[in-house]
Amino acid sequence: MTSALPLHLRRLEAESIFILREVVATFENPVMLYSIGKDSSVMLHLAMKAFFPARPPFPLLHVDTTWKFREMIAFRDETAARLGLDLKVHTNQQGAAAGVNPFDHGSSNYTQIMKTEALKQALDAGGYDAAFGGARRDEEKSRAKERIFSFRSAHHGWDPKNQRPELWSLYNTRIAKGETIRVFPLSNWTELDIWEYILAEAIPIVPLYLAADRPVVRRGGQLIMADDARMRLLPGEVPEMKRVRFRTLGCYPLTAAVESDAASVEEIVHETFSVTTSERQGRLIDHDESGSMEKKKREGYF
């Protein structure tokens, strides 16, 4: 029952539901970016609540770089089937044909081609006028500055210096033809809120979040999991089994694990109280250079 939730989670839940409904009521053709991670799982759960007894009246879109963890893909397909949702999967075919990968092309180019470009292709192809994303303001400094309804030009660009004022819950949803809005229903949630909510609502998550013995190599101070045979090992590297889990999930060669014994959501909540590094520490693409998230976002990254 919802009323069992603590007050702050109840408010966050209601705020997110309001945002989800506002989009469906005012846009022609919305889509939900589904990244399979914990935030997407919460966002999807909120969508199931917002439109009940109807199903969420929009498709899910997953941009598949082909380098996701295998368990993520299995979880994705199982979730869509369990909830009876319309799942659309898009891969940048030119990029895939050219063999673009995180090893040879550098994380920055790879992200640009297989994620950012792929996303733009999928949004254009679907003719979507609004796209939900699971980003939170506490993740990163430039995200802390972003509106809940974030306007994008016809070329998907973000102009951080010229954002619409966003007052009360009066979201300005008007756009011209070709323009789009990205909507972040989880803007005001923190990492801890997400975990507490997953715990309270028993929301299914990818098992990679829970500690288990997994084959990893230590590289540049980070633990990288060898998820399949495509993992390129450097001379002298031998994957060893370590008890690890992931705080954030992306492409496996670019996502670092943390050593942890937290094998249940309760234990994760406890661990999240006491961690001393931010969750995006495990995202290798953020470290390309300072301010690199803002740059990616201006180009259309979610």
């Binding site: 303001r137 506490d138 400094k141 802390a144 500055k145 951080p160 210096k161 954002q163 803007s187 005001n188």
Partner: peptide
């Protein structure tokens, strides 16, 4: 500071 930032 140019834009409003939300912190938690």
């Amino acid at each position: 500071t140019i834009d409003v930032a939300y912190r938690f």
